[in-house]
Write a protein that binds this DNA or RNA. Structure first.
Lengths: 342, 342
DNA sequence: TGCTGTTATGGAAACGATACCATATCCGGT
DNA sequence: ACCGGATATGGTATCGTTTCCATAACAGCA
């Protein structure tokens, strides 16, 4: 039932076919040391004929180096994850590292299992794209004997390098823009606070800007829900049904903004004529949805790429101390927010 | 400069600390053979204290089994790729396989390099999510000494198992629906034909349905372009500027449909009142975009999952012959297509 | 002729696990 | 008292590489 999958061509076979020794073949393979041109040619001929491919398994064991980077993604099928993975994978493959992917489907327990697996596989570094950083996470990461870089969460205070967006400043900037358009009563379509970056930081930025402008925040206008369209719809309903309606809504993600606009349309409220809606993230459909959504643009691809570079530096022993890199943002003014009489 | 990353705890260290032999420790680790409860406890204590984690490197070498599956993705940051990766990764991780990810950014040469890397890493199987299957690909796959499953392309005639959508039938079904709504002049917003599934098969299905209904296809209404919004806009312009406008447009992807509707809006044409537009793929925003897009729904998550199951079966030696699995589709009737006077 | 340094080659010990084999002890049954 | 199976343990070859070391041939040079 069980067949031997790989052909039984080992460096030893190549050596005997080429009438030489394993040492010499190894030198040819690694292009090191002295090998007479004639012998080299003979060996290369045998390799070409047999289709010999050296085993990383043996090589990595001997070298104590796997060239593997473990990457943990809570949910791979999302726009932001996809972009980040694309970015980090482009850097890592360029640096001759392979990506060992663990998609945990938002299950924290499975993230810890993945870390265990990574240790067994002797990865040379770990990239953790996290939504939540529990105490267990912190501990598991501290126990990792290789560099770890956290993306989209701040773990710098735990001594772990992090690459993240300046969510608070971005949300504040967007809120300031809404204020500058004359909006004073602004709803917030937020998410649960266990997502630090999106749930807490973006909300804080929103509150920062309001305070700064001397506008009092109305708790009745601040909703916490999930990331899906239903949550957006429910949130809109709650905002509209709580009493005096706002003139604008800040949704903490573009998906929520889209969901909100759809729900508003169902209730006969046209955006932006009767209500303004802003999103965050600038997913590609934000520029194409009707109305085109005013939002904050992040460069997730670059975020992933930067995190990977940071990790590569750490793996190559260049840096010791934990670093914290804050990525920029950009306000994208489009059509879903309109100026109202102040 | 270079430090030893992993702690020097080997099975041998555990053995001597627990005053026993490597064999016994190995038996405890693998839960096999006889070990006295007392000794087992002692060993487990040492493992807990030292934080010993066995090296897969050594284990895999000895067992000649990496438990790795190589996954090649042309472009990870796209909706369909994300879904498929999520699906296949859920199956693989459940079956205790790890995913070695190679994102090739649509570069065929780098796909071949990835296959080489996979051979070195001694992966136990390969999943290839391909847009293009060149002769070089076919050859490289034939040389792989482990099972290969191709997703979203038909490689069954090359003796390689494939899992794919029935693109042709799906496009035909959607076209038939447009015909049943009374449309007779229908534009096709297609893509380049080197993408067999999307470029060729969907177009063929479109033509099948027209022929079936005795409607002659107008080459001036059939556009080939890229997958991006600009392509959609250019395509719409060409269709509108070529003479007599159609009453409906079939876009071969939802992104193109969205792009088309936006461009039509810019030119003052309202969908569906003045023109109907259908898409394919049912990306999540298709249900939320205004108007909600009539489209074909595929289950990409399941596609990835099925491919992974197929691969697992093959890796475990259950099946020998190449299989071909055709996934279903579902017509999603929404608001972007309206019935016209026949 | 004898040195020294460069070029060239092969033998063998690691790397850290598994698994086969030999051996030892215990215990109940005759 | 002896046997045999079940229980328990340890020694060691092996997986396929790399790398260190020993050795050798040969050149140039005093």
């Amino acid at each position: 039932m069980e067949t031997i999958p790989y052909p039984v061509t080992r460096i030893r076979d190549v050596a005997s076919l080429a009438k030489t020794s394993v040492s010499t073949v190894s030198r040819v393979l690694n292009n090191s040391g002295y090998v007479k041109a004639e012998v080299r040619a003979r060996i290369e001929a045998v390799i070409a004929e047999t289709g010999y491919v050296p085993s990383s398994l043996a090589k990595d064991l001997q070298r104590q180096q796997s060239s593997l980077v473990g990457v943990i993604i809570p949910k791979i099928n999302s726009y932001t994850s996809g972009e980040m993975v694309a970015g980090l994978s482009s850097v890592l493959s360029e640096q001759r590292y392979s990506v060992l992917l663990a998609s945990t489907d938002n299950h924290p327990q499975s993230e810890l299992e993945s870390l265990k697996l990574f240790r067994e596989k002797r990865v040379n570094g770990v990239l953790l794209l996290g939504t939540e950083l529990s105490e267990a996470h912190r501990l598991a990461m501290a126990q990792m004997p290789v560099p770890v870089v956290v993306i989209a969460q701040d773990a710098a205070r735990h001594g772990i390098s992090s690459v993240l967006q300046d969510e608070r400043a971005a949300a504040a900037a967007l809120t300031r823009y809404l204020l500058s358009c004359g909006h004073r009563r602004i709803g917030l379509l937020g998410v649960h606070e266990f997502d630090i970056q999106v749930g807490v930081e973006r909300k804080q930025g929103f509150l920062d800007a309001l305070r700064e402008a001397g506008v009092e925040a109305d708790p009745g206008l601040m909703i916490q829900g999930g990331f899906d369209f239903q949550s957006a719809a429910r949130g809109v309903d709650r905002i509209l049904d709580q009493g005096r309606a706002p003139s604008a809504i800040l949704a903490v993600t573009d998906r929520l903004a889209v969901g909100a606009i759809s729900r508003l349309a169902e209730r006969g409220i046209v955006v932006p004529a009767q209500m303004s809606v802003a999103g965050m993230g600038d997913i590609d459909l934000a520029a194409v949805f009707q109305p085109r959504i005013t939002t904050i643009r992040y460069d997730y691809f670059q975020t992933g790429a930067r995190a990977a570079s940071l990790l590569v530096d750490a793996m190559q022993g260049a840096v010791a101390a934990a670093q914290k890199i804050i990525m920029g943002y950009q306000l994208q003014i489009r059509d879903s927010v309109r100026t109202v009489g102040g």
